[in-house]
């Protein structure tokens, strides 16, 4: 399941641990339940938090585990793969490390313990044009971007209105804040915005790659067992090629997410570009894999009776969330153009 690029023992072991947990605790029935009742599975959230996921990237000084971001990429893929509908990526990969790095002493003391232990859930709007966030209605803490600054708000300081989400188990909400709430006390230190965007983008890419991997696996299984004209459909060249192309798209995307996490954690000069490459290729792969999956399944999976549907819809949501393929390609193009003019703008397409 795991790639070999840069994936050292730690990242494989963390991913394997999480996969075994999800195999046992997040079967299809639980994935389906999250879709039908639309509420957050708090029991599952608590169990994953207890595994240490929410504090993985926080340092040991604040009660975290001090895992390097690139070592969490495969574990995040496993979340996408599992179908679990939990705001893990925002909390663990974005909000917790951003608070630790850019929060005031008061902010760190009042927010980090609850988020690391999993008692509190975080959402973020860093990439959503400022007002929409996944799981914002369920969140206790919100990381909100306003005027290129990041503000850290608790539940009393923001309100939410649900908006349509293509994936009913990953609910979307529009968040609103009274302007009087935003102050120096809520603002995070300079640099937080770019850093948070980079993190959100590589983490979403890894999550999406996990979704693609599950869709592709279901597709291969189906192609091996479904028979037409007395043969498994996977033995027909047209089907084989479709799946092979999807696999190539997915496998080329996976290392990009790893490199983006690595560049982000090391503060490399190409971190923003790497994040854009990661998300553009993850979105591209999800589209190719999703389309092939639907074809090979003969259209089943378009409706939710077939489990493929859950991953397809999540794929569609994540394909466009945190910047679509087009957005990130434009960012890359703009960065290349600006580079020649000596600018260091990050995500200039925003």
């Amino acid at each position: 399941m795991t790639g070999s690029y840069g994936a050292d023992e730690t990242s494989v072991e963390l991913a394997t641990g999480l996969r075994e947990f999800f195999n046992e605790h997040c079967g299809l029935d639980r994935v389906r339940a999250a879709w039908s009742d639309g509420s957050l599975d708090l029991a599952l959230w608590g169990e994953v938090a207890a595994l240490g996921f929410t504090g993985a990237l926080a340092s040991e000084e604040v009660g975290g585990l001090g895992v390097q971001p690139e070592d969490l990429v495969l574990a995040i893929e496993e979340i996408g793969y599992s179908g679990a509908s939990l705001p893990l990526v925002d909390t663990a990969a974005v909000v917790v490390p951003i608070i630790e790095r850019y929060g005031s002493a008061e902010q760190r003391a009042s927010f980090l313990p609850g988020l690391i232990s999993g008692e509190r859930i975080a959402a973020s709007t860093v990439m959503f044009g400022g007002d929409r966030a996944m799981f914002a209605a369920e969140a206790d803490v919100l990381l909100l971007e306003r005027d290129d600054c990041l503000h850290l708000l608790d539940r009393r300081q923001f309100s939410t209105v649900e908006v349509h989400s293509p994936d009913p188990a990953s609910r979307l909400a529009r968040v609103s804040v009274e302007s009087s709430v935003l102050s120096d006390a809520t603002r995070l230190a300079a640099g937080a915005t770019d850093d948070a965007r980079g993190r959100a983008v590589w983490a979403a890419s890894a999550l999406l790659n996990g979704v693609s991997r599950r869709m592709l696996e279901m597709t291969v299984d189906h192609a091996k067992t479904r028979e037409q004209f007395g043969r498994a459909i996977g033995s027909f060249q047209a089907v084989k090629h479709l799946i092979a192309d999807a696999w190539v798209a997915m496998e080329s995307s996976r290392p990009c997410a790893w490199y983006a996490a690595h560049a982000c954690s090391q503060g490399l000069a190409d971190a923003a570009a790497a994040a854009s490459v990661a998300k553009a290729s993850a979105s591209d792969a999800a589209r190719v894999v999703g389309d092939s999956a639907l074809q090979v399944h003969g259209g089943i999976g378009f409706t939710w009776e077939h489990p493929l549907h859950f991953w397809m819809k999540r794929g569609k949501l994540l394909e466009h969330a945190y910047g679509s393929r087009g957005f990130h390609l434009r960012s890359l193009g703009a960065a290349m153009r600006d580079d020649q003019q000596g600018s260091d703008a990050v995500f200039p397409g925003l």
Binding site: T10, L14, E20, L51, A56, V67
Partner: peptide
């Protein structure tokens, strides 16, 4: 299930 702390500490 081994938690992340356990996995990291095992080595």
């Amino acid at each position: 299930f081994p938690n992340f702390r356990g996995i990291l500490g095992a080595k």
